[in-house]
Design a protein around this nucleic acid. Structure first.
Length: 767
DNA sequence: TGGTTGATACTATAGACAGCATGTC
DNA sequence: CTATAGTATCAACCA
């Protein structure tokens, strides 16, 4: 168990280090809440980090998951609130944001308000202003910065969770840029960065002018090893036989269950997750007691309730769950995934076979983690590539469940004898990898360069260089390589009318709109081109194809034999017109374009009220894929509508209607009905079939008639209420936690959000 | 001839953020 | 370049 502390501050000497909550300089009220939650003794990393944090220092805390990092962050946030500052908690995933929001809300009895800001769940600006703490994705925080939100004015603390994800080429730069911008805006900002164990966490600390605390402490110790031919060799070279029957996965699962533990099997494909679950189901079922069988059967019942339709994947899943096993991947929709996660946490499920969905997500530990696949298909490479050691180590970190397990075990299955040594030394035993900035990735530069300029933070190349010097990239890598790419990106933005030409850096109206819409500039350019080419009365499919072909909506894979179908659709006149680009770098390889058209075809069928079962069978996708694509498309259609309005194209209205249809998956004739709260795809169709084509028709109908059509008097009353008072209906769900006691002093009303410009303010640009 | 078996070739491949204004079955 | 499991295809073989 190692511990390293470096940093600008002189660390407190070990003898002064607190070992319980009582030793901390905390308000008695905070201490009482902690005690009420059973938090008393501090883990070593907490004891080491908290004095720094509570004295207002920035901190980089690098240690394994479940070692108590969150508490350190929460106390930093509470301290800020006590000093009438606000706190921002940055997370990489919506599900994680929800988790942190729920946990922070537990402290709301102390008299402050917590809010949640994630894509599908946001607060009106007025409510935001009254919040003391906000949990947000990096992208949402980036959005607040772009719009110069006054909520940030009183900001005192920023927590950056999973900060090692800065190395992610897609979304890491957003976190890096957001942290840099926040620090520039608030010179005295306290940053609490929480990281997995990485090689260069001290370098991160140096960048953030923070105290560095690194530790290998885990409340449940971890052993990791490699399985080969009936024997596990641990990294300490101890070995253990794991007896037959069955292959490695089966043997390891059986052994885990025999000791009363749970197991997670990590695999690299969706099919692999289904297959692995199937593979161990008989032996898991054999260990279940009568009560456990009943509990698992109940989970299966709930699964049927939360699932929208009985797809083939759901049937497979529902067949496995009563046996105590489930698979977990992104083909499942969110409700299904959350249900399975809860069932595993409550030990109603014994084994989960999961794709990386689970590795990066919420805290879900198991006594044993079995890593079946150590390679994964890499789209860029076109073939299998090893999963980075850091990711493998993250999966391993899931092993060991506090209170249930004395020790956690992570075991990698070796496929070939020659792999054993490599896995032990170069993967499990590898020194933790470094976090490296990915700011130089071009899509990221496009986004953030435009945003910096559009928000007025950067007005010249000199200011831009200064900005980059303040990033982690600037602190760790030579800027020359970046500057070269920036110039290319700047050329792209200027060439497509997002930046004003000339030596200075100034965004056009189109550039500002693109930044506000949070679109990849490449997408905005493609959407604008589609708008300009779209004929009057353009068919929905062509518009869907236009949004599906942007880089903000990754294409679906084509299955065998699907190619001809989408080649044919590509040849449709309007489609080719809206989607095809002749010039670099906007033109897309045919293969990807056909995948985009498949996405458009899926959405088209969704709009045609095709049942989800039929969609999954016809296109080989899961319910989760469908919802993800529909959500993305709805967002992009909104962008399309705004761009159309900005350029005075008479397309905004039909596109808004299309976006609403995409949200609910309904034909045009249901558009009026689904505007009612509580009425969606299924109920809308029920009403329509019963002869109520729109809200006006419904207004004439007797209440009991509506109730019988909807098979719910409660719902019918709710609908009737909305029909009488369009603004009434059920009040919106309250997200902000109202304090039971006197509210904190509320800040004055901030400046309103910069209004979107009217049409004529957008100059025309060469296409 | 019909059916089975086995060698071989071919096929497919993880995940999830954002706008806006409030709720699907 | 750094893979593998599942499936389709087809020839060889047997009754």
């Amino acid at each position: 168990m190692g511990r390293r502390t470096t940093g600008p501050a002189v660390p407190p000497s070990p003898s002064l280090r607190p070992s319980t909550v009582d030793d901390l300089p905390l308000d008695p009220e905070i201490r009482a809440v902690l005690r009420a939650h059973g938090i008393e003794a501090l883990y070593p990393p907490q004891a080491e980090a908290l004095p720094h944090v509570l004295s207002g220092r920035s901190l980089v805390l690098a240690c394994p998951t479940a070692s108590g990092k969150s508490l350190v962050a929460y106390l930093a946030l509470l301290r800020a609130v006590r000093e009438h500052r606000t706190g921002l908690y940055l997370v990489p995933l919506r599900a994680l944001a929800q988790e942190k929001f729920d946990e922070l809300s537990e402290f709301a009895s102390l008299g402050f308000k917590v809010g949640l800001s994630i894509g599908d769940f946001d607060l009106p600006a007025a409510k935001l202003e009254r919040l003391d703490l906000l949990v947000a994705t990096s992208e949402k925080a980036d959005g607040l910065l772009r719009r110069g939100s006054p909520w940030l004015d009183r900001l005192g603390v920023v927590v950056a969770d999973e900060v090692h994800l800065m190395r992610d080429p897609d979304r890491g730069p957003t976190l890096e840029v957001t942290l840099t911008r926040l620090r520039r805006r608030h010179k005295d900002l306290q940053i609490v960065a929480l990281s997995a164990t990485v090689g260069n966490s001290a370098e991160l600390a140096s960048w953030l002018d923070a105290v560095h605390v690194a530790s290998d402490f885990r409340p449940v110790p971890l052993r990791s090893g490699v399985y080969l031919d009936g024997r596990v060799t641990f990294t300490d070279l101890e070995t253990r036989e794991v007896g037959p029957p069955g292959d490695g996965v089966q043997r390891l699962v059986r052994e885990t269950l025999a000791g009363g533990g749970q197991a997670i099997i990590f695999v690299s494909t969706r099919r692999g997750s289904e297959q692995a679950a199937q593979h161990v189901a008989p032996l898991v079922a054999a260990t279940l007691s009568a009560e456990e069988k009943a509990a698992a059967a109940e989970v299966a019942q709930q699964l049927h309730l939360v699932a929208e339709e009985e797809t083939e994947g759901l049937r497979h899943l529902a067949g496995l769950v009563p046996r105590g096993v489930a698979f977990h991947n992104a083909a499942l929709d969110n409700a299904e995934r959350r249900l399975l996660e809860r069932a595993f946490l409550t030990r109603k499920l014994k084994v989960l076979a999961a794709t990386p969905t689970l590795a990066a997500g919420i805290n879900l530990p198991a006594r044993r983690v079995i890593i079946r696949d150590t390679t994964r298909y890499d789209d860029h490479l076109g073939m299998q590539a090893p999963i980075p050691a850091l990711e493998i180590q993250q999966m391993c970190g899931r092993a060991g469940r506090p209170r249930f397990d004395r020790v956690g075990e992570a075991i990698v299955i070796a496929r070939h004898p020659e792999d054993e040594a490599r896995l032990l030394d170069d993967v499990l035993g590898a020194p933790p990898e470094d976090v490296e900035s990915r700011l130089a990735a071009e899509p990221a530069l496009r986004m953030h360069l435009l945003a910096l300029v559009a928000s007025g933070e950067v007005r010249s190349r000199e200011e831009l260089a200064t900005f980059f010097r303040g990033t982690f990239y600037g602190r760790t890598l030579p800027l020359d390589a970046l500057t070269e790419k920036v110039e290319a990106v700047r050329g792209f933005l200027e060439g497509h009318g997002l930046l004003e030409p000339g030596p200075g850096l100034r965004a056009t109206g189109f550039g500002e709109l693109t930044s506000d819409l949070y679109l990849d500039p490449m997408s905005a350019v493609a959407l604008r081109r589609a708008i300009e080419r779209a004929p009057i009365g353009v068919r929905p499919f062509a518009l869907l194809a236009a949004v599906a072909a942007t880089p903000d909506l990754p294409p679906l894979f084509l299955r065998r034999g699907e190619e001809a179908e989408f080649v044919a659709r590509y040849a449709e006149e309007e489609v080719e017109l809206l989607v095809k680009a002749e010039e670099e770098p906007l033109d897309t390889p045919l293969e990807l374009m056909l995948g985009s058209l498949k996405t458009a075809a899926v959405l088209e069928a969704w709009l045609d009220e095709t049942p989800i079962v039929a969609l999954t069978e016809r296109f080989g996708i899961g319910a989760g894929d469908l919802h993800a694509k529909a959500e993305d498309a709805e967002w992009l259609l909104f962008g399309l509508s705004r761009i159309a309005a900005a350029f005075r194209k008479p397309l905004a209205r039909p596109v808004d209607d299309l976006a609403l249809r995409v949200r609910y998956g309904v034909k045009e004739e249901l558009l009026d009905l689904v505007r009612l709260r509580g009425i969606g795809r299924a109920r809308g169709r029920l009403l329509f079939s019963a002869g109520y084509a729109d809200r006006e028709a419904l207004r004439q109908a007797p209440l009991d008639r509506i109730a019988s059509v909807l098979r719910s008097p409660t719902l019918a009353r709710q609908v009737a209420l909305q029909l009488r008072h369009p603004e009434a209906g059920s009040p919106p769900k309250e997200i902000a936690m109202e304090p039971p006691a006197a509210p904190a002093p509320s800040p004055g009303a901030g400046t309103p959000r910069r209004g979107h410009r009217r049409l004529d303010e957008y100059p025309e640009h060469p296409a």
